[in-house]
């Protein structure tokens, strides 16, 4: 049982998409999670709700609005076309943007929980010892929430790999460009090629199981909650 070149393309594309998305999520999600963890009030609560929205919304809803946003007629789509000369909708870049939004809560929430558990007193102590805010973050917050970064990155990655609805809406199904694993699988099923479908589906199950197993094992008994 070996994978054909279209399938290998889909796997490669999926892993690339998940990696790029995860890196972007860590870069964007960390300051956002930090900000949310230190604030109380209406504005942070509203932002928190928006971040959590992909958890409950059908992915197609998100995909539908993103598609409208990415269309060449829209301001963003038009701007993108001016800037890059290519269309945003049905492109790899569109997939990345969609995935970042869709997987945001999976990265922000574990980080926010971890940050909230770091006592303000430790940061005050660091400040009196001469640590500036960025230094406090690097020398106290980061090492104390290392496990949660691992959790956040794994969940963000895995969730992007498993994404379907958003990708279908905004990416279409262009082999080598936007055809990710879940879409390729959908294709097989639609054309009743169940043997190939089994191969891909089985590979996804094994991959996801392995990732989650490694994650839970590294976090010991505590599930994906980190220990302070």
């Amino acid at each position: 049982m070996s994978l054909n070149s279209a399938e290998l393309d889909a796997i490669y594309l999926t892993l690339t998409l998940a990696s790029v998305t995860t890196i972007l999520l860590l870069i964007l999600g960390t300051p956002l999670a930090w900000w949310l963890s230190r604030r109380r009030g209406t504005v942070p609560a509203a932002i928190e709700a928006i971040v959590a929205l992909p958890l409950i919304l059908p992915p197609t809803v998100l995909g539908f609005y993103l598609l409208l946003l990415f269309a060449p007629q829209s301001a963003l789509g038009h701007f993108w076309q001016q800037l890059t000369g290519t269309q945003l909708a049905f492109s790899f870049s569109a997939l990345v943007i969609g995935s970042v939004i869709y997987s945001l809560p999976f990265v922000v929430q574990p980080l926010q929980t971890a940050f909230q558990r770091i006592p303000q007193g430790l940061l005050e102590a660091a400040a009196t010892l001469g640590a500036r805010p960025l230094d406090q973050f690097r020398s106290v917050v980061l090492p104390l929430s290392r496990r949660s970064f691992l959790t956040a990155a794994s969940l963000g990655f895995a969730h992007t790999v498993g994404e379907f609805g958003v990708v279908l809406m905004i990416g279409g199904n262009i082999p080598g460009e936007t055809q990710v694993l879940s879409i390729a699988l959908f294709d097989y099923v639609e054309s009743l090629r169940f043997d190939e479908a089994h191969r891909l589906a089985g590979a996804l199950i094994v991959f996801s199981l392995a990732l989650l197993f490694l994650l839970y094992r590294s976090n010991g008994q505590t599930g994906w909650r980190m220990r302070a």
Binding site: G130, A131, D135
Partner: peptide, 8 residues
């Protein structure tokens, strides 16, 4: 705080 020569 980080620029004050204070031990706490």
């Amino acid at each position: 705080a980080w620029n004050r020569e204070v031990g706490y």
